[in-house]
Amino acid sequence: MTDHTNTDRIRGFNDSFRRNLVTGGTVLLTPGVTSLEPDRLAELLDAVRKFDNFTRDNDPHGGHGFGSTELYGSRYFFKIDYYDQSGTAASPEPADPTITHRVMTIMRADEY
């Protein structure tokens, strides 16, 4: 596969995972996120699902693996990392879902 094809596949898997937050990986929430009131947490998760403001600055490799949003005066980040199926090492090929487990961390910017 070419690098362009791999980037397209990675972006597709990341977008699918981010949009549903259920299938395709695991979502981790930091203490700053879990301390939100339920309604605000739901708004934040919805903002992550709908995020589409990917630019060269926040997405230099084109994989849609990082983004930021603001909610009620606080900035939040999401970041997708790629692990092997055991979760103990980096995935050797993030474009291959049979060997990659995605982990998205959603955090307040000051927790980064």
Rank of each mutant, 00 (worst) to 15 (best):
A42M: 07
V33C: 03
Y72D: 14
S35C: 06
L28V: 12
S68I: 00
K50P: 00
T2R: 07
R9N: 12
L41T: 02
G62P: 13
E43G: 00
T88D: 12
K79E: 04
F78W: 10
G87H: 10
T69D: 00
D59W: 03
I80C: 03
G67I: 05
D52H: 15
P31S: 02
M1E: 14
E37R: 04
N20P: 05
M1K: 07
F51Q: 03
P31T: 02
D52Q: 09
G32K: 11
R75C: 04
R9F: 01
L44W: 06
Y76P: 01
H4R: 14
G62E: 04
T2N: 11
Y83T: 14
D84M: 09
F51L: 00
T55F: 07
G67Y: 01
T5M: 11
S35Q: 15
G25H: 02
D59L: 03
L29Q: 14
N6T: 12
P31M: 02
D8N: 08
L44Q: 09
Y82F: 15
T30A: 03
S35I: 07
E37V: 15
L28M: 10
R49S: 01
E43S: 14
F54P: 14
I80W: 04
D81A: 13
G12M: 01
A42S: 14
P60S: 08
G73P: 03
T30F: 07
T26S: 07
